[in-house]
């Protein structure tokens, strides 16, 4: 996957949403949303329920087509023309709000399926397991601390372990951009902080966009924050900056 877009002429943003609109049955879930995220950035997206956070992720990952607007990847690719698998192959990984792993597969196989490798039917059909592959699987298992559960069926994991496994799968994809939807949901405080540390460590090398409700978690991420409201950007800046703004307070507390 090419990352040679440093100094791209159009703009430096790795992901650039331009005037995106999407309505469902008359309700405008996304309304003229524009957003730019630089390569290697860690960005938190917050907003009240119905602000359009999940729909935004759906649009970036090709699950939902916008009615208007563009989503430019690396300056030259319009993601709105590509399906989910195509977007994933470009190097965009996504973690769902509800942990989604392959329940009937072993923990190891979950990671193995996520490992960066050709995704076509025939290469996969004739894929033979190599020592290198095993090494990489072990590496990711170590990182998410599930090595001891390697052979366990994923269905038998606890909720938190599934969250970790999914993050591990996300890492195994070696994506350039990680979209993480409410990773702290259902986690203990300690786990939440651990997750924040992990995401911070990934950022820099990769771009990370986190959608979150939990303000403590966002504070722990210590990054630039985008506030969504009614499908468009209400405010952007540091958490202290945006949380000082009256309109943001209004949106969060006013109703």
């Amino acid at each position: 996957m090419s990352t040679a877009l440093i100094g791209a002429p159009l703009n430096a943003a790795q992901l650039y949403l331009d005037g995106v609109c999407r309505s469902f049955d008359g309700f405008k879930a996304i309304n003229g949303l524009s957003l730019a995220v630089a390569k290697g950035e860690l960005r938190a997206v917050i907003g009240p329920n119905g602000a359009g956070k999940t729909t935004m992720m759906d649009i970036i990952t090709g699950k939902t087509r916008p009615d208007e607007g563009k989503v430019i990847w690396n300056g030259d690719t319009d993601l709105t023309k590509i399906d989910e698998a195509g977007v994933a192959r470009l190097g965009i990984g996504r973690k769902f709000q509800k942990p989604t792993v392959f329940e009937t597969h072993s923990v190891e196989d979950n990671i193995r399926l996520a490992l960066k490798a050709p995704r076509g039917v025939f290469p996969v059909l004739f894929d033979r397991r190599s020592a290198e592959e095993n090494r990489r699987v072990t590496e990711y298992l170590d990182r998410i601390r599930l090595t001891h559960l390697r052979a366990e069926t994923a269905a038998n994991l606890s909720h938190g372990q599934k969250q970790w496994l999914e993050i591990g799968m996300l890492l195994a994809q070696e994506p350039q951009l990680l979209l993480v939807d409410e990773p702290a949901a259902g986690m203990t405080d300690a786990e939440t902080m651990e997750t924040a540390e992990l995401l911070k460590s990934i950022a820099g090398e990769r771009t990370v966009i986190v959608v979150e409700h939990d303000m403590d978690f966002v504070r722990a991420l210590n990054c630039r924050v985008t506030v969504l409201h009614q499908g468009s950007v209400l405010a952007e800046g540091s958490l202290d900056h945006v949380s000082a703004r009256d309109d943001v307070i209004e949106v969060y507390l006013g109703r």
Partner: peptide, 23 residues
């Protein structure tokens, strides 16, 4: 085979499989 595992993955969590890049 690994493709067989992908098939089961599709059966169990189709969208997860898509977001991993499998068509």
């Amino acid at each position: 085979s690994k493709a067989g595992k992908v098939l089961v993955a599709v059966r169990d969590a189709e969208s997860r499989t898509r977001f991993l890049g499998y068509r």
